[in-house]
């Protein structure tokens, strides 16, 4: 009875929606919904003491790339903003590259342990993953600070007399981000390697491939979805990072996240902050769509 079946399906869908409703309402109220307000605010005029004046303006969006000359009103490329964007993108890409370079061997190591110890190694990677990002940033801060462990040790051993200035540089932010986001790279890589059929390695060696050839021609192409997933998982939060650059980069080495905050604080330019937030959201969405496409291509047969 097709009509009966249709009725049952409709009822099942209604139940599905009804059960999901509280979660959707909560998220709509305190997560997704307010994003629309940000979009609206990006088209308004900044108020004198923060907040906005309800008057349409494209200055928020224009302000992302241009500054208006205060004397003749002409538009110039905003060098300071571009520097921040470039730093954000560069540091995020470098973070992704570094975490891949050390994360892949780590994931491989975990995936090739005997079943018993593998769970433990995986757990050891998971603990930092769930540990407070601020705590981990503090921890790495204490290692690289001027009076931190590294400098104290180096001075104590007499290798250097002046502390190495790492803290409050781009390098410090890079070290910090690679440190805090590494588990995000290792976990999806592990998942991909864990699914990898180890018999293919034997097949590769049996067919005269060297270790390097096996790695390049067999392993990497097959675990590619995991590589893409890990890269996106590291790149996206790196680009939006706020805590790490704030603690390790000091006030000057800002990234987009800190720049956004600035607009809602001392900068008193909420529309620009809103437009910057939307820009960040768009970049992240594009990256995620790219990921979804790559992931679907990776497994065309389910």
């Amino acid at each position: 009875m097709p009509s009966n079946e249709n009725r049952q399906r409709a009822a099942s869908a209604r139940t599905g929606w009804a059960l999901s409703a509280p979660a959707l309402l909560l998220l709509g109220f305190a997560a997704s919904g307010p994003l629309l307000i940000v979009l609206v605010y990006s088209f308004l005029t900044p108020g004198d003491y923060g907040n906005v004046v309800w008057k349409f303006s494209l200055d928020g969006w224009r302000g992302i790339l241009f500054t208006r000359d205060i004397f003749d009103g002409t538009l110039h490329l905003a060098d300071a903003n571009l520097t921040i964007f470039w730093r954000s993108v560069k540091l995020s890409l470098l973070t992704t590259a570094i975490t891949f370079a050390v994360g892949f061997p780590t994931a491989w190591f975990i995936a090739t342990r005997p079943a018993k110890s593998r769970a433990l190694w995986l757990f050891l990677i998971t603990i930092p993953f769930w540990t407070n990002l601020l705590i981990r940033t503090v921890a790495i801060n204490e290692v690289i600070r001027n009076e931190g462990i590294i400098n104290t040790l180096l001075i104590w051993t007499g290798l250097i007399t002046e502390p190495l200035r790492i803290i409050y540089t781009d390098t410090a932010v890079l070290i910090g981000m690679a440190y805090v986001y590494l588990p995000l790279m290792v976990l999806p890589l592990f998942a991909a390697i864990d699914r990898f059929d180890m018999k293919l390695l034997e097949a590769g060696y049996d067919l005269y491939a060297s270790r390097w050839q096996v790695l390049r021609r067999v392993i990497l192409p097959i675990v590619k979805p995991g590589i893409v997933a890990g890269s996106i998982l590291v790149f996206v939060p790196s680009l939006g990072a706020y805590v790490t650059p704030r603690v390790l980069g000091g006030g000057k080495n800002m990234m987009i996240g800190n720049f956004i905050e600035l607009q809602f604080g001392a900068g008193r330019n909420w529309p620009l902050g809103a437009a910057l937030s939307m820009t960040l959201l768009i970049i992240v969405t594009v990256a995620l769509l790219f990921y979804v496409r790559a992931a679907n291509r990776g497994s065309p047969h389910g």
Partner: peptide, 14 residues
């Protein structure tokens, strides 16, 4: 999926 800073700004306003 949404960067935390973006949600944070949205909630600040709302």
């Amino acid at each position: 999926m949404v960067p935390e800073i973006v949600t944070a700004v949205a909630l600040l306003i709302f």
